[in-house]
Nucleic acid binder design. Structure first.
Length: 287
DNA sequence: CATATGTCCTGAGAGC
DNA sequence: TGCTCTCAGGACATAT
């Protein structure tokens, strides 16, 4: 679930450890591990030991921990991963512990209940190949020209295209629905049928929704998994306009009822009245 | 037992 | 026909 706002909240939460030094890296207690952990923990530990954390950044839905030797720890939480300074929800699913010294926190943790998340230690020259080349511009800074140019010939539905991290990095299922609601655009609209002003509205709505969500520290859904770095809940779930609100009356027009459809095997929520399609021929069929 | 948030992979089918 | 684009489905692991 962590999408851009949740990952950005994690990033800000661990920012205070910039300037700390890593004493060691361990894969604690549990034998469970992330789907991908590279290199092996022994090599990982050797390479990070004694290194200073010089910055904590973010690329799309990944947290980037930059070390003094220019190596970067790239953490991808995927469905249930958390980057924490506080003690985790349970020790059972703790996947990585960095012991720290010389700063406000004595640890930086990666906790992941489902274990689909990944942790990689990459040298500077590997970053371009393994991270940058797979991601489009960050959703917070993407321009409407970039969106339009990448998608104007695409036959995909706009909702599906917004989830493509190679197009724009950071948007997931929840925020795609919120963004298109704010844009007033039917999620089934084909990209090649969108007009210039519509691309601009999508870009503006993307910025607005993501910034709002960051201010509220992301969305903690009913499963309660997502937490900020101090193990607190996000607050944006109370401000969702359409996500997970099937049959509720639309907050804008008050008349339409929020509808749920399935696109690319994921739920899409929208208001059929506020998000009118212009013509059938510009729409991608959804089941 | 179906469902949920993200990504990667494969294979089939659509369309230029 | 041939190439490219797109989507369906499975895999990953777990709790409601």
């Amino acid at each position: 679930m962590p999408e851009l706002p949740e990952v950005e909240t994690m990033r800000c939460g661990v920012l205070p450890v910039v300037g700390s030094r890593i004493t060691n890296a361990q894969r604690p207690e549990c034998r469970l591990r992330p789907i991908l952990f590279e290199p092996d923990i022994r090599t990982f530990d050797q390479r990070v030991r004694g290194q200073e954390i010089v910055d904590v950044g973010r690329r799309g839905k990944r947290v980037m921990i930059h070390l003094g030797n220019e190596d970067v720890i790239v953490i991808e939480p995927r469905m249930t991963g958390l980057v924490l300074l506080a003690d985790p929800p349970g020790l059972e699913h703790l996947r990585l512990r960095l012991t720290l010294t010389g700063g406000p926190s004595k640890q930086l943790l990666f906790w992941d209940r489902r274990g689909l998340g990944t942790v990689r230690l990459l040298a500077a020259d590997e970053l371009k190949l393994k991270v940058d080349s797979k991601l489009g511009p960050d959703a917070l800074s993407v321009t409407h020209h970039e969106l339009k140019n990448k998608l104007k010939t695409s036959r995909r539905a706009i909702k599906v295209a917004l989830l493509d991290q190679a197009v724009v990095a950071g948007i997931g299922n929840l925020y795609a629905a919120e963004i298109l609601f704010l844009s007033g655009i039917d999620p089934r609209t084909r990209c090649d049928g969108l007009t210039g002003p519509q691309w601009k509205r999508i870009q503006q709505a993307t910025h607005t929704v993501l910034q709002e969500a960051i201010q509220h520290e992301g969305s903690t859904l009913s499963d309660g998994t997502y937490r900020n770095a101090l193990n607190g809940e996000g607050g944006y779930q109370n401000y969702h306009r359409v996500y997970d609100r099937v049959d509720a009356s639309c907050i804008r027009c008050k008349k339409g009822r929020v509808r749920r459809i399935v696109q690319a095997q994921r739920s899409t929520f929208f208001c059929p009245k506020c998000q009118q399609r212009r013509g059938l021929h510009h729409t991608v069929r959804a089941n």
